[in-house]
Every structure is written in C-alpha cells, then in structure tokens.
Design a protein around this nucleic acid. Sequence first.
DNA 1: CCTACCGATCGGTAGG
DNA 2: CCTACCGATCGGTAGG
Lengths: 199, 199
Amino acid sequence: MSPRKSVAETQHTRQRIVERSLAIASVEGLEGLTIGRLANELGMSKAGVLGHFGTKVSLQLAVVDAAATAFTEEVPRRVGDVRPGLPYLRAVCEAWVSYLERRSLPGGCFFTAAAAEFDGRSGPVHDAVTALNALWQRDLRVHVRRAVTAGDLPSDTDPDQLVYELMGVMLALNHFLQLQHDEAAPARARRAFRRLLGT
Amino acid sequence: MSPRKSVAETQHTRQRIVERSLAIASVEGLEGLTIGRLANELGMSKAGVLGHFGTKVSLQLAVVDAAATAFTEEVPRRVGDVRPGLPYLRAVCEAWVSYLERRSLPGGCFFTAAAAEFDGRSGPVHDAVTALNALWQRDLRVHVRRAVTAGDLPSDTDPDQLVYELMGVMLALNHFLQLQHDEAAPARARRAFRRLLGT
DNA sequence: CCTACCGATCGGTAGG
DNA sequence: CCTACCGATCGGTAGG
C-alpha cells in the first residue's frame, strides 16, 4: 500500500499526468490518448491515473484546460506591453509564428489539431474546444476593430473578413510545419501577415 | 454458407465498404474507423469486411485512395475547359469552395482532416496523405508559374508564397465551416481568393 | 495510490 | 462470405 500523499504531492501527480497527456494528445489526438498508455509511461497503475479525474472525458477536459493555459502563456502573454489595435495584432501574430517555431508541443498547435479532431463530434470536449476557438477569434476581432477606429487599418475593413484571413495564415503555418516540415513556412506566414496588417 | 459471388458482386461489396468507411472516417478519423462498426453498419461479419483488405492499414489506404478519386472528380474535374494559369487557378479555387458548400462528406474535406490526424504519425497512411497533399500543391504551383509567365500575375510573384496563402484560405474555409458552421465563410473565402488572384 | 477484476471491443485468424 | 475464436487492450469499478 502506498503511503498517504499530501495535497501538494497529489496536485503534482495530477499535473504530471496532464502534462504527459498533452504531449501524447498533440500527436495522437485526444481520442487516441488512453489511460493504459498514460499509466505505463508514468509508471503508475491505470486506477491511479483515473482516480484523479474519474472518467476519460474529465481527463480530456483537463488537458484542454491545460492547453489553453499553456497557449495563453506562450502567445498572448509574450506580446508584452504593446498598444491595443494594430500594434497588438502584429505582435500577437508574430508571437504565434514564434510559438510554432519553438515547437513547444511535438504535434504543433494543440487547438488546431483538436478542432480538426472534434469538429464532427459532439459532447463536452467539442464544446470546450469550440469555446476556446471562439475566444481567440473574438480577441483578434476586438483588436481589428480598434485598429480600424484608430485609423491604423482602412476604414472599409471588414473585421470578420480580416479575422478569417489571419486565421488562414495561422492554420497554413501549422499545416506546412507539421505535415511537410517546411522550414520556409514561418517566413511565409510573416510575409502574409505583413500583407494583411501593413508593413 | 454464402453462395459464391461473382467478381462484379465482390467488387461492388468492396466499394460499399470503402464508401461507408469514407463517410465514417471523415467524422471519426481514419484511426477512429473500426472493422466492428463497419461490419455492423453494413450488415456483414467483421471477417467479411476484413477479407477484402487483409488488414486495417490496407483498408485505410483504400479509403485514402477513394477519397483522392472522389476529390479529383469533385474539384479539378469540375473546372471545365478553362485555360491553364490564372483562369485555371480562379476556377479551381471556386470549385474548392463549391465542393465544401455542397457538403459532399459529413466531415468536410477528408484530406484536411487526414493531414491533421496523421501529421505526427508515421507509416504508409501518413505517406499516402502527404503525397496527395504534395500533388495538390504542385498543381497549384504549376498554374501560378504559368500565370506569372503569361503576365496574368505580377512578375515578382513568389509562387510558393502564393500557394501558401491559397492553402491558408482553403484550410480556413474548412475550419470555419466544420467547427463553427459559419455560413458566411464561403463568401469570405471567395473574397480572399479574389484579393490573391485579382478581381 | 495499489491489486484485481469487469464486460466490451479491438484487429486479426482458422477453417470452411 | 460466414461462425467461432484468439490475445490484447479499452474505460472503468471494488475494495483497500
């Protein structure tokens, strides 16, 4: 029998599970993630892993949550103190390119992969992924609007159209980097962003 | 014991299996496809299904092949007899938008989904998906070059850059349509293509 | 956090 | 194309 663990130790174990899950899921997908593999790689029993979450869906939701936190730390938070509107847009797009260049996760952008995996399914995981995707696009749209108001983007700019095109450049970067290992892709993404957001 | 089937009947059954597999895989992914589910939905035994392919990987490859054939029929073949270069590019981009608008597959573009699913894996399925993706981009690039040569696109056009941006618009259309059911997305895609390829 | 176990399902095979 | 079956693994539970 294992000795009783402190709350801190329990939370640390939980964090280890989630981190490993995130790395596995970025390659195999959230459905390809299995309790047995997780237990094996962490040197634990399946029951020990599952005890922290109850069900696989709860584990998946914890992984989505951790991915959102990591993404926030690695992209928007790295933008630094730049003004809202166009300066923010340019900085956050550059932060996105840099995030994928750094290869923080072996499978590239977790949310791009999760969006493709769950877009045809239903349930809490789909809903969580969709909600976070919406948040990200809302953030972009807010700053596009401010840029237009400030006169930094043409007054006839359609914010939804620009968000659509920015998203396209981002999705393409993940695609070219992950599927084709195209090392020229980051430069192409930067050039495309420059064309959309001015020099 | 079932009566002996003719070659034609055997091929018909095989085709039924592949078609159903394609519909399932476009939603659940090629890994989420299972022999048991397939057998159940087709009213066959698992052995009856698997007998046509031998292994699950062979079935997956047959599905990729069928998806490629269907894609060719539904996109490049619908372009009609338009001149190579810029006219072809405009027509094939419009055919792509129309293809996704028609919702031929419940999960959207099969290759976009398969690319995201297999970009971190290795093996014959990954290789097949990657090769078809490369073919598609090569086709686009060939016509971009011709358009430049013909003087229909600026002489300083970087073909790989334009292919990258065209791919971004395509990936974004699938993303907005599948994940967000955004019915305005096709119009945004058309507008983005127009901006990239002239009015 | 463990051992021991559950029914269901996985891909695949033998034999006809 | 079927029945019958294989070992492995799935998510999850009981009980401690």
